[in-house]
Design a protein around this nucleic acid. Sequence first.
RNA 1: GGCCCCGUCGUCUAGCCAGGUUAGGACACAGGCCUUUCAAGCCUGUAACACGGGUUCAAAUCCCGUCGGGGUCACCA
Length: 523
Amino acid sequence: MVRTRFAPSPTGYLHIGGVRTALFCWLFARQHGGQFILRIDDTDVQRNVAEALEPILRGLHWLGITWDEGPEVGGPHAPYYQAQRLPLYQAAVRELLARGAAYRDYARPEEIQAERDEALREGRPFVYSRRWMAETDAEAARFEAEGRQPVVRLKMPRQGTLVLDDMIRGRVEFDWAQEQDHVIQRPDGSCLYHLASVVDDYEMGITHVIRAEEHLSNTPRQIFILEALGYPRPKYAHLPFVAEPGSRSKLSKRKLDKYAKDREFGELLRHGQQIAERLGLSADSEHLNPVMVDFYEKLGYLPEAVINYLALLGWSLDDRTEHFTWETLIHAFSLDRVNRAPASFDARRLQAIQERHAGLLSLDQKVDWVLPFLERVGWIGSPPTQSERAYVRSVVQAAGDRIKVAGDILQFQELFVADEKLEYNPDDFRKRVIQPPEALPLLTELREELASAEVFSASELEKLVHAFVEKRGLKLSQIIHALRVAVTGKTVGFGMFDILAILGKERVLRRIDRALALASNPT
RNA sequence: GGCCCCGUCGUCUAGCCAGGUUAGGACACAGGCCUUUCAAGCCUGUAACACGGGUUCAAAUCCCGUCGGGGUCACCA
């Protein structure tokens, strides 16, 4: 039975690299008919765990990464919070002590630091002298008489080699001599990550430890712990870490300013900021950061598209398949096709994948996708009425592939605003309505034609306008630009006839009238 | 600095393990087509094996070295 786990620390956000790891664990478990466990690594967290955990759980839910055991769902190995499992760790520490694999150490932090500094000065690797090591109670009593407090350290081997068969990286060797006597328990009895992690993985029956590459060099000490405790060794798979755009260094949420200079990352960010502003969301780097998954949720990306992108972050099936759904992904995924080199975050590719998934949505799916965003800004009621829904449907249909993420619907404000509140872009208005000498008279004539139109559908209107220009020996472009600005206030948008049909005769005429008045009496 | 990992078009990558490809794809870019604007679409094009040795009839692929990048060396996780 395959059991994998994702063990995030409650930090208040879900990092792209983190979910990628979670996804790979999930995929591997699913595809082997196994289980995926979510465990919270809060051994060192002072903050409010529930609050700091919420964004992580929310992100996983949004993406559809479900867990078989863990917070909210419980399970046979509860609790799934490390802070609540301390007795287990302390028992393991006692066992390690009893077996001579660990010792109480009475060194003061500054004494250790002094040894470390000395080693550094002499250019040799630091190896603790074990001067304050207490292996008997008598030694311990002597140190304690000096007012010293003990930590518990691992008594690591000082010779020999550890051979690790990593499912992704192959055979990796480490010299035991390079390893430190790591602390596993603090003076106050609290335990540290490596110990807790090993104990929990064992207790929870984890068979495959799949995690990011930065843990590769931590693995020897973990193996030392588990072997000392007599636990079986799980299989390890170290994923390449997620790197910055165009670089090989680790992606960090704090370097947003730097990434913003990358053309494609910058575009993704600015596009997001525009939507966030329209939504009235805070767009600063703490709240809107493409390194974090909630960025995509807030702006209306499709979870399946994000999953598709994440899967390709360090993994590929072959030389051409890029489009994956949950289903095809579960089927196609395999750990041995995971790349060894760091996977750089490629904003443009994420966007391209999102666009592909969005393009596959049916019209009604798109409407459902976009509706919450319109409700949130109050352009339609919440919940929307039947007629509002029908209206949005016509807008979404005309918008076609211009809606790349759900929040893009907010670009089309002119279709939702009251006619008397429509804002004309001053430059466009001057250039398209005021300056061309024929614009005003033509618009006036066209208004009358439109007023007498019997059927106000896109196709009928197209015929009408074409007939209008042909009769006068004009080209379509000689009237359509002025019409567009008069009706929508700007020069860009979707098909003109679609817009007319969506707005309907009454509103179109009102808008033209308003534009004509404005043009003849510019104030 | 020690240890460990990684180096293919501008970018993300396939190919490497089991040597023989016109080194493939996607995105970006350039040109063209379509066109009422924008978006999309279609066609075409530019463009890469970090470097140096070795093994071999043959090396992106195997071996050695160099250079470059990164990760990690906590009483953080």
